[in-house]
Simulated assay, not measured.
Amino acid sequence: MSIPHLFRCPISLDIFTDPVTLRTGQTYDRQCIERWLADGHRTCPVTMQPLGDAALDDLVPNRTLRHLIDRWLSAATDHRLPLSAAGDDDEEPSLAALKRCLLLQPDAAKVISTLKKVLALASESDVGRACMLQLGFLRVLLPLVFHAPARAECRSDQAEVEELALRCALSLMPTNPVAPELDCLNVLKREPCLASFVRLLERGSASARAGLCRVLETVATADATRDDLALLVAASPRVWDALLMPLLSSDADPEHEAEAAAPARGSAVSHGAVGALVRHLSKARKATEDGAAASALAAVESLAAGSEAGRRAVAGAPGATRTLVRHVFRMASSSSDACSENAVAALLAVCGESRAARSEAVGAGVVTQLLLLLQSQCGARAKAKARALLKLLKSK
């Protein structure tokens, strides 16, 4: 089945989710035309007629077209799946049959087979994707991702179900932040579901963690979740610990961890992790008094060294440079060596690009701290970074 031409947005060429009509008589998906206008365009994309500065106020919901699309989707949900999605079964299943299987979960093998069909259909067919959204597949898939841990003998099957269900959910998830279907993400408000989310962030594969970072981005921007759920997630120390774990792992395979670490860094920086970490470090009078300070310093170093956005965030965070200077040299302890190395590495990354950070560091006494560190019994790596920072400050 193909989508009728009139049911496609002229900009995205995807099926309409929220059709609105301009005063020129042309209909577009709300998200697409709002983005067009936000980019400074003041013409109708199809007719090129001028729209004026109040074009956003002239958008009229096209309820008739929305009703026709809903009726068409309802009629389409009973059609038989194409062979490429149905697999080798004797009888091609309907969408309703696939949904029923995911709800009943007869056994892990059957659920895995069904999820593969759902993923194939969502990837290959715009109609299939739109129909599954209308049938509420997203609401059925999320409980398969976020649920209580299985018994030891079932964990291998559970991991495959979780990852397949997450891929299916991401393929169906609307990009429009006002889409009503995104309300189902509020399932994460339940404590067991949030605990399962954290468990997947901690122990899931690199691709699963990257997918969960996409879920976090959606939670932070969707109208249905950004006011309540986003605040709940952001206030959870368990979520931050799990989110930052790929950044702090020293024994992970860099090639595979990069897929999860990059979106994790982006999410952490954009959602204020630097400020939160600096506030935590400023409250710890000594790094050795708080075991979490070592992890916090490692996280700051990773964010500062990992991207330009991270370096800007550290340089611009109030008191960040002075706080890092304070942790450059501490009395010998089991964790002081690592703390000093991370603090110096973070300063090296930030001071290399920010004149203000260099001035603030010198004013906070970083030179004295570095000289004390060089005379201590710290490790060779910490001393090498201390020398590099001293050379940088001298050359600048």
Rank of each mutant, 00 (worst) to 15 (best):
S334C: 02
A304F: 01
S359M: 07
E353A: 15
A305T: 14
H327V: 04
M331Q: 07
S334D: 11
M331P: 04
V350W: 02
A361Q: 11
A338S: 15
G363V: 06
S340N: 12
D337H: 08
A305D: 06
V362P: 09
A320M: 03
N342V: 00
A317G: 06
Q369R: 13
A349M: 02
E360W: 00
E308T: 10
E353F: 01
G306D: 07
T321F: 05
T321A: 12
A305Q: 09
T321R: 07
L370Y: 14
R330N: 01
A313R: 02
R312K: 09
V362A: 15
A315Y: 06
A345R: 06
A338C: 14
E360P: 01
L372K: 11
G352C: 10
V366E: 10
R358M: 12
S336L: 05
E341V: 00
C351K: 04
S335A: 09
A345Q: 05
Q369N: 11
L348H: 04
G365F: 13
S307Y: 02
V328G: 10
A349V: 00
T368Q: 14
S334W: 03
A364S: 14
M331N: 04
L372A: 09
R311L: 05
L372V: 00
L347H: 03
S340H: 12
N342F: 15
